[in-house]
Computed example of a mutant assay.
Amino acid sequence: MTNGNLTLDELYAAANEMCRKHWGVDYTGTIRLTNAKWKVRDAAFVATVDSDRLREIRMSRVVNAKLTRDEVLANLLHELVHWRLCTLGLPFDDGSPEFVRECLRVGAPFSGTRKAQIAAKLYGGVAK
């Protein structure tokens, strides 16, 4: 049964709860729900590197509707790892050792991309 249709309020509440639990801070970015029909992505983190003007997690209502609540929350946690490392000025790419280590520490899933899977194996000793 799929019930991943979380509202924006539910996503923000979950983001704040996860951020407080893992990093002791509130989530200060934005979350945008789109109607995108992504086929190879579940969610995305978008940021401006030269300023803190944009720190946004994008999720698709269409994709979320096909997932369970737990899967949507796992995707959110993965994107929150990107956000947290970005706010600290650390490498936040799926292929960076810092990202892999933080995902392992907080229990966030890895992306299914080849790059992410290689990094997970190389830096964390795990593969999907």
Rank of each mutant, 00 (worst) to 15 (best):
A47W: 03
L77I: 07
W23E: 02
K39S: 14
A119T: 06
T2W: 05
A36G: 01
N64Q: 07
P109W: 11
L104K: 15
E79T: 11
A108C: 06
L122P: 00
N64S: 14
V62T: 15
D94L: 04
G107P: 12
H78Q: 05
I31M: 08
A108I: 00
R69A: 10
L54V: 15
D70I: 14
T2P: 14
R69F: 00
V40Q: 14
F45G: 01
N16L: 00
G24I: 02
V49N: 09
R53H: 08
A116Y: 13
N3F: 11
G4F: 08
E102W: 03
V126D: 02
H82S: 02
A47S: 12
V62E: 15
N35M: 09
G95R: 09
R32S: 07
E71Q: 14
M18K: 15
C19I: 00
L6Y: 09
A44E: 08
L6K: 08
W38N: 13
L54K: 14
L76P: 02
L6R: 09
T87F: 00
K21C: 02
F92E: 02
G125T: 05
K37G: 10
D52M: 10
L88P: 03
E10W: 04
A116Q: 10
F99V: 08
I31Q: 14
C19V: 00
L67G: 09
F110W: 12
L8S: 07
G89L: 03
F45D: 02
M1Y: 12
T7L: 11
